[in-house]
Design a binder for these strands. Structure first.
Lengths: 123, 123
DNA sequence: GCATATATATGACAACAACATATATAATAA
DNA sequence: TTATTATATATGTTGTTGTCATATATATGC
C-alpha cells in the first residue's frame, strides 16, 4: 500500500503497508470474473494499487492461493498472444472472502480509532 | 493485527496484518505521555493489539525509531523495579504522526472501497 | 526485421512479525 | 529464607512477504 517500491509516498514513514490486502482483492476480482494474472495486475489499480501491482507479487500469490485451494486454474491456449492461465475462485475461496471482509471491517475500526485519538490529542 | 501469533483469529486467512501499524500507535502514545517499553506493551491494547504487543516487536521498534530520530530516551534509575528507559517523541516524530495519519486515512478509504465492492458483488 | 505489448515465472534481497529465550531487579507469598 | 511472580529490557532465529530485477515466450504493429 505504501512503503516504497511501486507504491511510493513522500514521507519516510514506511507504513502501515497492509501487505496481504492484495489477496482478498484478488479473490474478489476472481469472484466477479475469472481472469488471468496479467489482467489482475491491471484491475488491482481499482483497489488502490496505484501503478498496478507487482507481477512477482501477483503471480506468486496466485500460485500460493492455488496451492491452498482458494483458486483453481486452467491453461487457455489458442487466443491472441501467449498462453494464459485462467484463474477462478473456489468454494473455499469464496468462504474466505466472507471471513476476510469481517477482518477488514475490524481493521477499519482500528484505524478509525487511531484517527479519532489522533484528532483528540494533536490534530 | 491478525495472522496468527498473539493476535490470533479463527479463519485461516492470515491477513491483512497491517504490520507497521504499531509504529504510529507507539508514537501517538508517546506524544500523549512519555513512557517506557513495558508500559507501551500494555497501552497498545487500546489500539487493538489484543493480548498486549509482543515485547520483541515493541523494544526493537523503539530502538529503530530512536535510530531514525523519531523518539529519544533517557535511563530512569532509582524507581521501583529494574531501570527503565523513558522514551519521548521528538519534533521529527510528531511530524511523522501527522503524515502517518494521512496515510491511515487513505488506507481506511481503500479498505472501505473493498467492503463496498464486496457488498455489491457478494455480501 | 525490430520494437512493443502481452503473459508467466523465478532469483535475490531486505523488512518485519512471530516466537523463544536470556538477563536482571524488586515485591510478595510460602 | 526461599521460591515465585511482576517488572523491565534485550536478542537470536525463523518464516513470510514486498520489492526489484531478470528471464522467457508469443503475437502485433511499424
Amino acid at each position: 500500500m505504501c512503503g516504497g517500491g511501486q507504491n511510493k509516498h513522500q514521507c519516510g514513514c514506511q507504513g502501515p503497508r497492509m501487505e496481504r490486502f492484495i489477496r482478498p482483492c484478488m479473490l474478489l476480482l476472481l469472484y466477479e470474473k475469472p481472469a488471468h494474472g496479467y489482467e489482475l495486475m491491471e484491475s488491482l489499480k481499482e483497489f488502490g494499487f496505484e501503478d498496478g501491482a507487482d507481477p512477482g507479487l501477483v503471480y506468486r500469490n496466485l500460485r500460493k492461493m492455488e496451492k491452498e485451494g482458494w483458486v483453481e486454474s486452467e491453461w487457455e491456449t489458442g487466443g491472441a498472444g501467449p498462453a494464459k492461465r485462467l484463474y477462478r475462485v473456489t468454494e473455499e475461496g469464496i468462504e474466505l472472502i466472507h471471513e476476510w471482509s469481517q477482518h477488514i471491517r475490524g481493521n477499519i475500526e482500528k484505524l478509525s480509532y487511531f484517527l479519532e485519538r489522533y484528532h483528540n490529542s494533536i490534530g
